[in-house]
């Protein structure tokens, strides 16, 4: 392949991403216009609040950490052809487990060890919560969409039950776990409000991307994702691969929960559920399961969330409008991809 064609390929990819983004912003703007809001003012405010102001930019970057880790988990599962839609349960249970253990560990272990131990526990809890769907899928072929969704419901309820009945901090009125002192949370980066979880998350996404595309294990998972029968014929131990992909995916999502608790909140309140599990799915698809592209989309989405929440108070557009933009983005991505494919098909004789 010559440099020219690589460049053309890159250009085409960029175009396939930028066109849907532009269309989503335009149609979203039209919706705002119809509703009597000022789209230019809204977008301008979101951009300024979330990226151009230093405080907002720090918030945006901090918000990226859990999104990136969840995305890493979804990349593993989706590339292996596994629909892990139970991210919310895995995330929350891991968050609760690490929030419950952190204040205990900090009394007996040094800070660094406490944080690492809690992140490991979080990953383990996430992975454990995927065992039943994984075994049912590997052994009996039970559809994992339904089982992961159900385990997610179970997990979010169980997290609440644990907080309200078992782990409740007796000193607070609202049920929540004992909180980890601010000084013992994940270290901040260079005097900013961004915590070290962001670095971990970025590195994890890159490592996962390389693992999926450059290692034998990753390629085996990709074969499994493309065609299970082919994986069986190639002599792979398919059941083990499914279990491994599921466990790794859920462990990464669990890690996201632990990092969010150890880096930002220090505690989990009852009924807290950021519901990021399904929100990240579109981002991973937009990025076509590519780890580097995921970083870009996560930044975009994180900025929209931070700016959108603030715009709800300032500009009078509810923050859920961001969801409309994401949905439009997905729709246009699908349409552009379809048009692109049919153009190529008709182009070849």
């Amino acid at each position: 392949m010559t440099d020219g064609s690589t460049f053309a390929g890159f250009q085409a990819t960029l175009l396939r991403v930028l066109v849907p983004v532009a269309l989503a912003l335009i149609v979203g703007g039209l919706i705002l216009l119809v509703l009597g809001k000022d789209p230019v003012g809204y977008y301008g405010y979101v951009l300024e609040r979330s990226l151009l102001r230093w405080g907002g930019a720090q918030e945006t970057l901090t918000r990226m950490a859990p999104l990136l880790l969840i995305a890493a988990g979804l990349i593993v599962a989706f590339r292996a052809g596994i629909w892990n839609l139970g991210g919310d349960g895995q995330f929350l249970l891991a968050a609760v487990a690490s929030a419950a253990l952190a204040p205990v560990f900090i009394g007996i272990l040094p800070r660094g060890l406490t944080l690492v131990a809690c992140m490991l526990v979080g990953s383990l809890v996430g992975a454990l919560w995927s065992v039943i769907p994984a075994v049912l899928k590997a052994r009996y072929g039970v559809n994992e969409i339904i089982t992961t969704l159900m385990m997610s419901f179970l997990g979010t309820s169980l997290a609440n039950v644990l907080i309200k009945l078992v782990l409740r901090d007796p000193d607070t009125t609202v049920p929540q776990t004992r909180s980890l002192p601010v000084d013992d949370r994940l270290p901040r980066l260079f005097g900013t409000t961004i915590h070290g979880g962001l670095v971990l998350a970025v590195l994890t996404v890159i490592v996962v991307h390389l693992m999926m595309t450059r290692t034998a294990f990753g390629l085996k998972l990709q074969v499994l994702g493309a065609n299970r029968a082919a994986a069986v014929h190639a002599g792979f131990r398919v059941e083990r691969l499914i279990l491994a992909a599921f466990a790794l995916s859920a462990a990464l999502i669990g890690l996201a929960g632990a990092v969010e608790v150890l880096g930002v909140w220090g505690t989990v309140r009852a009924d807290w559920n950021p519901a990021l599990g399904l929100l990240v799915v579109p981002l991973v698809f937009l990025a076509r399961f590519n780890g580097f592209a995921v970083i870009g989309f996560t930044l975009f989405f994180s900025a929209l969330m931070v700016g959108g929440e603030s715009a709800a108070r300032r500009v009078g557009v509810p923050q859920h409008y961001v969801l409309v933009l994401v949905a439009l983005l997905l729709l246009f991505l699908g349409i552009v991809e379809y048009l692109d494919q049919s153009r190529r098909k008709s182009g070849t004789p």
Binding site: L278, P282, Y321, L323, V324, L328, L331, G334
Partner: peptide, 14 residues
Amino acid sequence: IVIGISITLGAEGL
């Protein structure tokens, strides 16, 4: 699945 998720997200927002 992708279009389904986008319908749910879009409906929630809209």
